[in-house]
Amino acid sequence: MTQATPEKNPKKNESLIANLLFNIIIPTVILMKLSGDEYLGTRWAIVVALAFPIIYGLRDYTRTQKVNFFSALGVVSVMLTGGISLLELDPKYIAIKEAAIPGLLGLATLISLKTPYPLVKTFLYNDKVLQVEKVADALKTHGTEAAFEKTLSNASVIVACAFFLSSILNYILAKVLLVSPPGTVAFNAELGKMTALSFPVIMVPAMVVMMSAMFYLFRSINKLTHLSLEDIIVQQ
């Protein structure tokens, strides 16, 4: 009598709730509610609050055994925020840092168009989302490869605009909210408020622009290959 081989456990999808909890909600609560001397104090509140997104990013690496570019970038960003806050530097440096990271990503996206490896293929047109080989074969069959390269260029510009929008909103949010001297309870509360508002004020508009780029890319693929989205999407 043969025994059935146990099925391999599928990889768990990243939890949006856990992501929001560790990266936004918990740090916000700690900075806004536990920065007083009767609780953690201003310095320890920053250390504990920023430890959560760092631990979450490291957990993502140990779980996948791969360096997730955006997780790594998030960890670096959090560490820079913590360092600037603990050193009690002028809050303008946090505003500059908040604007610089997405701004540099936008520039890198545009510059990559001049290389054989445009970043839009990392963000949107990759084999984790689309059956790229099937698309390539259909493009060759219909003789629309040159038109598709133009589509990728246009999509790259839209993606870059999403990063630039995030950069501008990051800077405005930091300049408007961070007005108290570092090392004070008020500054920690402002830092927590900035963290809380980063999702609705920054992420949502940027994601709308990014989704527009994805919609444009998918519609163009359909037009150039005569394949439906169901034909080319990777089945999870």
Score class of each variant (00 low, 15 high):
Gly143Asn: 08
Ala108Asn: 08
Glu7Tyr: 07
Asp137Thr: 13
Val48Tyr: 02
Val76Trp: 03
Leu130Thr: 09
Ile54Phe: 10
Glu133Ala: 08
Ile221Cys: 04
Ile25Glu: 01
Met1Pro: 05
Leu86Ile: 11
Lys12Ile: 01
Tyr125Asn: 12
Val204Asp: 02
Met207Thr: 14
Asp137Val: 13
Arg63Lys: 14
Leu21Ile: 05
Pro205Glu: 05
Ile54Asp: 05
Val120His: 03
Ile94Val: 15
Ala51Ser: 15
Leu107Phe: 13
Gln236Met: 12
Thr81Leu: 11
Ala4Asp: 13
Pro6Tyr: 06
Pro102Ala: 06
Lys92Thr: 13
Thr28Glu: 06
Asp60Gly: 13
Ile202Cys: 11
Ala108Glu: 08
Gln236Arg: 15
Phe164Leu: 06
Glu149Ser: 06
Leu119Trp: 01
Phe164Met: 06
Ala72Trp: 08
Val67Pro: 02
Ile46Asp: 03
Pro116Met: 03
Ser167Val: 02
Phe69Asp: 10
Leu197Cys: 06
Ala138Ile: 09
Phe69Pro: 13
Ala136Thr: 11
Ser156Ala: 08
Ile96Pro: 00
Pro181Gln: 10
Ala51Pro: 08
Leu124Ser: 09
Phe22Trp: 14
Ile101Trp: 03
Glu7Phe: 09
Ala196Phe: 14
Ile111Arg: 00
Val78Pro: 01
Phe215Glu: 07
Phe187Ile: 07
Ile30Ser: 02
Thr184Lys: 11
Ala108Arg: 09
Leu227Gln: 13
Gly83Ser: 07
Asn126Glu: 10
His142Pro: 02
Met207Trp: 11
Leu107Met: 14
Ala155Tyr: 03
Ile158His: 02
Pro91Ala: 12
Met1Asp: 08
Asp137Glu: 14
Val78Asp: 01
Asn170Arg: 04
Val132Ala: 07
Ser220Gly: 00
Glu98Met: 14
Val179Ile: 13
Phe148His: 12
Gly82Ile: 03
Ala45Asn: 03
Leu130Gln: 09
Ala189Ile: 06
Gly83Arg: 01
Ser77Glu: 12
Phe70Ile: 15
Ala147Asp: 15
